[in-house]
Every structure is written in C-alpha cells, then in structure tokens.
Design a protein around this nucleic acid. Structure first.
Lengths: 207, 207
DNA sequence: GACGGTTTGTAGCTAGCACTACAAATAGGC
DNA sequence: GCCTATTTGTAGTGCTAGCTACAAACCGTC
C-alpha cells in the first residue's frame, strides 16, 4: 500500500470512517454530572446516559473515566472561571478587585447549572488510592489560584494600596482557604445569599 | 420455659456467651481509618484488618458500615473537639477566644494521629446517593458549630467587646466557612505552619 | 458437666463497578 | 461500487464492594 505520507500529514483532520458523536456537547453534559456528583460516585453508565452514547464510544473518544474527568475540569475552568480571573487583574483597586472576585465566586458556586460548589475543590475528595493522581492534579490547580491571589496582593502593595507590612503570603493562603470553604458550603446546599455574606466578609482578610 | 422475667430485667448487662472483642479500642482504630480515607473509600475489609476482627463481628457489634462511621464521628468530636469548644466559652475576651480556637483547630487538623483535616468536613463528601443521610448528618453537626460561633459573637457584643453594628450572622458563617476550608487544605497535605497562618488571619474576620 | 445463648472464623453471596470483544453500520478514497 | 478505516450498539468480562449463612468455639448458668 503506497500511502502518500506527505499528503496525509498536510491534511490535519480527515475523518474517514463513520463520523463521531458531538464530542464538545457530550463533554458539557459530562461536566454537569461530575460537577454535581464528584468523580467517584459518578458511574460510567450514568455518564453514557447523559452523554447519549455507549461505553465504547466514551472510551474511544476520551480514553477512560479519569481522562474524561480532567477534560471536564479544563472545560469548567475555561467556561466559568477564566473571565473572573481576568477581572481580578483588570480592576485597578485591589480591594474592589477582590470584592468583585468573591461576589462572582459566590454566584458561580451556587450557579443554577450546578449549585454545588467548585468541582476543583470538591470533585476529587475521598477518591480511592488508585485515583490519587486526580486529587493531586486538582490540588495543583488550587495552588495556582493561590499564587494568582498572591500576585494580585503584591501588586496591591506595590501600588501603595496595601500596607508594606502585611503578610501577603498568609493572606493569599487565607483567601484560597475561604474560597475552598465556600465550596463546602455550596455543596451542602447553602443558599446564594449565605455565600454572598461570606464574600462580603472576605475583603476584610485583604487588609 | 418458665423464665424468671423480673430477675433478668433487674440485671442490666449480663454477658452470657463468649465475650466480645474490645469494642472501644476497635472503634478508635476505625475512626483513625475513616479519618484518613473518608467514608466511601474505606472498605469493610480494611476496617476489619485494623480493628483485628472479622466482618460478622463488625456487623454484630456496630450494625453496618454507616452506623460504625457515625459512632466514630461521635468519638472524634468527643476526643478532639469538646475541650476546644469549652475553651471558646471559657475565655472571657472574645478575640482571644477565637484566636485560641483557630490556633487549636490548626493543630488538630494537622494532628499526627491523622493530619488530614476534620472528618466531619471531609469524611462524607462525594458519597453515593444511597449514603446521602451521612452527609446530611455531618452537615447538621457543622451547622451546630456555626451556631456556637454565633452565640459566642453575640456574647462578645453583649460584653461590649464587639461593636453593635457588626453582622454576627455573616461573621459566624464566614468563620465556619474558613474552618471548613482549613480542612480541605489539611486533607491536601498542607503543613501545620500554613494552617497557623490562616488561623492568625481568621481573627480579622471577628471584627 | 451438660445446656443455651453469644461470638467467632470460614467461606461465599449478590450487586454494581470500570472496562472491553466483537460484529454490524457508516462513510470517505480509489 | 468495492475497499478500508473508524464508530457504533450489544453483550459481556473480571473484579471488588458490602454484607451474611453456617457451624465451631466460647462461657456463664443450672
């Protein structure tokens, strides 16, 4: 079979056989389920049901349950949080920036799409030992968020909006810790109003 | 069979047959495992291993896995937290009281016995739907804790140590939320020093 | 010391999990 | 219109979970 290698390489995506289901739409449905139920309690059977496919299609398109979960997480960050982080940097006043961030966070965590907290916080708590790498990946994501808090606080100090003496490291850790707690509250069914109360208090940590 | 009913009722606990294993010691071992791993990932097989018993003994003494878990939770509260709550009330200065509480909390959550947060917070996240009643029970416990915070804050206002205008309700919610976040951090392996940083910032929420 | 109630250890049960063979169905390339 | 690559649906695999039947071992009581 003299395949013309160059030509096939030039064309990036040539679907030859039967065309696949709507991968992006299915991922959205998977995210919604993982978000509500967490990684472990969500079964492949349930995923297939909401995605409108059968197990072989899921494994063919996403690898396995864990890889599907990580793709859903990336989708979640992109759709729900990217704008919020951009706004944290865009607002010049550091206190207003954090106030807006936490108010928006309270809104997302009690979103009608899935009013059950942040899947990055709650999605992989209590996973069996063999899935520990998933919990580790989410913890790394949260640590990156903490570093974004820290950078914003340091900029606030550099801008003269915050006192030089404050412990930006401790404050950044406290803010991410409070944000994590807000996910626990939301996952327990806390109302949006209750989280807005917490968001209002959060700014006091900034100093 | 003319059994002497009155006599048997008078005697409250008459172990007739073969005597049981050390129930209290076994419960301690079960708590340690539940604490580290959470409810769902902890298997009955692992529980039996650390408790030094076999499944029939576990079910005979504790009912089932869920009831054993709830007994372990009660034991946990008693051994690790009861004193801390008493101290919150005993200290007359409300700010000192909360400072001490959160410092002690940071210590407990990173305790060498199980440096993985509070089992009341993390133990029943992501349980399957059929075990939802366990998550509900833990959430009720946390709500009780919030009410203790609230009462202490209100006393602080009554004692003239806190301004009348503060929103004690919002602050109590924020404090329990932060405490819950600290458990997430600890379960992710955060060092004791890191949680002490958060504890130091917590007092700023009191107002 | 035999009896009767209790606990114990062995072994296994049912159900549900993540995952996969396999062949039929699909659709582009020649 | 055939070939070939890919996806699909059916049906099932192996594994592990929580839980239990059963008979032997134990121990106070008569």
């Amino acid at each position: 079979m003299p395949v013309k290698i160059n030509e096939t390489i030039i064309q990036p995506h040539v679907p030859k056989g039967r065309q696949r289901f709507d991968r992006a739409a299915a991922l959205d449905r998977a995210l919604e389920l993982f978000w509500r139920k967490g990684f472990t309690p969500t079964t492949v059977g349930e995923l297939c049901a909401v995605m409108g496919i059968n197990p072989p299609s899921l494994y063919g398109a996403f690898g396995n349950k864990a890889q599907l979960f990580m793709e859903a997480i990336a989708q979640y960050e992109r759709v729900y949080w990217d704008q919020t982080w951009v706004a944290l940097e865009a607002e010049p006043d550091v206190r207003k920036a954090f106030a807006a961030f936490f108010a928006e966070a309270a809104r997302i965590l009690t979103s009608p799409d899935a009013p059950c907290g942040c899947v990055v916080v709650t999605g992989a708590i209590n996973v069996p030992a063999e899935d520990q790498h998933i919990a580790d990946a989410l913890r790394n994501l949260r640590e990156q968020e903490r570093d974004l808090f820290l950078a914003r606080l340091q900029r606030g100090v550099a801008d003269g909006q915050l006192a030089d003496e404050i412990d930006t490291d401790a404050i950044a850790t406290s803010l991410i810790t409070l944000l994590e707690g807000m996910s626990i509250e939301a996952s327990g069914g806390a109302a949006g109003k209750r989280l807005q109360q917490v968001a209002a208090c959060a700014v006091r940590l900034v100093g």
